[in-house]
Amino acid sequence: MSKNLQSVLPHGFASLERFVDKWAKDTSQARMEARCTSTQEQIIEFYEAVLAVSDVAMAEIAKHPLTEMPEQIQKLAKLILALAHASIAVEVHGQPRAIGAPFPNSVRVSKGAAPFG
């Protein structure tokens, strides 16, 4: 896989670059699926990497109105939103998906909150 010279995230977030493809999704449903189709090791790795820079990231994103984020900020925002889903595995279940629940299953978020829902 060839890499773009220009990074997709704002300056200072190179440590999250490798998570973009899997986690920086456009909708809540896609972020939930990213969690459900990952191993616990992958989820923990992402969770720790995001939390390591989450305060700085929050401050950076807060500089822009929700509806007028530059492309790179949008990607970063989507990664932070994916943390919410990773936290279900880490902070709630202690495994990627709920114990005893089938996957795939029919539960779907057909409309999330704006933006990036």
């Binding site: 929050m58 807060a62 939103l81 919410a84 909150a113």
Partner: peptide
């Protein structure tokens, strides 16, 4: 964005 993140936690 903070509120937006809270909503995602909720979802």
């Amino acid at each position: 964005f903070k509120q937006r993140f809270q909503q995602e936690m909720y979802v």
